[in-house]
Design a protein around this nucleic acid. Structure first.
Lengths: 316, 316
DNA sequence: GTGCTTGGTTGCGAAAAACGCTATAATTCA
DNA sequence: TGAATTATAGCGTTTTTCGCAACCAAGCAC
């Protein structure tokens, strides 16, 4: 076994101990292993290096020239490992270093970016890399540590922390209502100006169902609309809606505060709205690993905390 | 297994390779091990550090923050080991560093010290520590790498390279002979002035036997002498003999050149002389180890070379 | 979509090693 | 000279290692 690869940290530490203690048995007792272990450990090291490290005898253990030289290196290596461990340990005790966060563009703008200042304040050693993309996830490719996603979650290779369910609302500005009137049922929609989000999988479909009156469970109905504006940029649609251009079907996190402030008016309050038939969850997703980084856990906890329960943007 | 000790250099090297190659299987192929090995190796490292090092997936291997940090340390450690190896390797190719040589005082003065200059010239990186002691060896205590000893050698924990056999001669200066006459047989010795070496085990005994005439083998006979000077310092006795104080019974390496130059005269040429009944060897002794240092081998070879064969101090 | 290939992980069994115990040789202390 | 201590070699048991095959996920070709 002339291979350097066979050297283990253990060997190095034993070697250092023996070097300092000038005795195998003292080390053996201190480390609570058999003396033969220590002896063999040093032998292994010697074989791996092809050099005698000690002259040894029943009564004396004297370092060779090579032993003295190697002791310095061994110490340096052990030192380095210990430092590495310390640095990594610190990381688990106190969040530090880079965390790469990914989120949908507009969600990030409205509900992540505003909170980052406080986050940075709370964990000064944290460096946040925020990338906002709407395309449905670059799971690993982007090497994101934490991904905010909205949708039906089903991916075994990730852990997901559900932040909440998103509710869609049909809304328009008071101006618009004054000018065009208010739809009373989804069937009225084709007469209205629709502002439609278009993602990479095509334009959103507008779905409605009557709120459950009694036990009868209505099913989702797709309402065709007249799209006067289609965009892959939610902010633009939002602005268009605020300035009275037309109706939007947007989730609560996007228009919740506008509704509360009266800048937009909730339409079809007797209907539930959606763009997908499955319930859409807002979730923080992170890679499924055995040693989840503290960084990521802390970030999730932070956002769960500031979003509150119910989520601060929800209507009720 | 949360123990740092379990980390082996192999793990580190695999980790570094994976880090650079961003792939387990590439490393596995290059290192000619199974992919599972590499995978488990990294897992081991992660368990030992308690930190995830890669986000991995069937199609991508992305370093964690912790992974990137640890990579630096791992590289540093590997670097250090490689340097250590190089330095030690150099030592096996080219003699360098400290060699601690021990020898009997007068032998060292006469037959070691004079040759050290040339030795140092030949191996400039060698640093020689010469300690001269007559007391019969401090075997390991003194941490000598190479010990010149004279006597009957029997120690299994050492290797011995026999340089030659030592022959004792009875001698006196021409002055002395002129004044006191020349002994013809050992029985004449009590009438003469004897200069006797006294070591830690008492004064030397002077033994003689007639040189083998035919097949008859005489045995050693102890001749009592009149010691006018006893000393544990051979040089002093030697000086006393040169200045005509009396007879000395000294080995060839000590008085060989004086006999050749006629400063001393060989007495009782028909007798063999000795101080011990067993043949006395001059030997270079070094610790019995599995990886004998080049330093020591080179030193022995050098002295064997300069002493020549027959040894340059021998009479014939 | 459907198959095909690639890549990381896991289970399993044989091979190897680690490890403690004991014995042994060497050496010091009383 | 015994008693004690120490490093090491031999041993058998326990643990680990490691390749093979199976598996699952993800991309690619068609």
């Amino acid at each position: 076994m002339n291979d350097l690869n066979a050297i283990s940290i253990r060997n190095l530490l034993f070697f250092i101990s023996v070097f300092d203690a000038q005795s195998f048995s003292i080390v053996a007792r201190r480390e609570e292993v058999s003396a033969s272990m220590v002896s063999r450990s040093v032998q292994q090291l010697e074989d791996a290096l092809g050099q005698q490290l000690f002259y040894r005898n029943t009564r004396a253990v004297i370092p060779t020239e090579a032993g003295r030289i190697f002791a310095d290196y061994a110490r340096a290596m052990a030192e380095q490992l210990s430092e590495a461990q310390k640095e990594l340990q610190d990381k688990t005790l106190q969040p530090a270093g880079v965390v790469r966060v990914n989120a949908p563009v507009f969600f990030g703008q409205k509900h992540i970016a505003p909170w980052l200042a406080e986050l940075s304040n709370r964990y000064p050693k944290l460096q946040i890399e925020l990338s906002l993309t709407d395309d449905f996830i670059y799971p690993h490719r982007e090497a994101a540590d934490l991904i905010f996603r909205i949708g039906a979650l089903a991916d075994s290779s990730f852990h997901a922390r559900v932040i909440g369910t998103q509710t869609y609302y049909l809304a328009a500005s008071p101006d618009y209502i004054n000018k065009h009137g208010e739809p009373k049922t989804p069937a009225d929609l084709p007469q209205h100006q629709a502002l439609v989000y278009r993602g990479s999988s095509g334009p959103n479909r507008w779905l409605f169902k009557e709120k459950h009156d009694g036990e009868k469970q209505a099913s989702w109905v797709h309402s065709p609309v007249k799209a006067v504006l289609t965009s892959n940029n939610a902010d633009s649609l939002f602005t268009a809606a605020l300035t009275g251009m037309g109706l939007v079907l947007f989730p609560d996190w996007l228009i919740g505060d506008s509704l509360k402030q009266g800048k937009l008016v909730l339409l079809l309050p007797d209907y539930e709205a959606a763009i997908k038939t499955e319930p859409q969850c807002i979730a923080a997703i992170y890679p499924h690993v055995r040693h989840p980084p503290l960084n990521v856990r802390v970030l999730i906890d932070y956002f769960i905390e500031v979003y509150g329960s119910p989520l601060y943007w929800q209507l009720e």
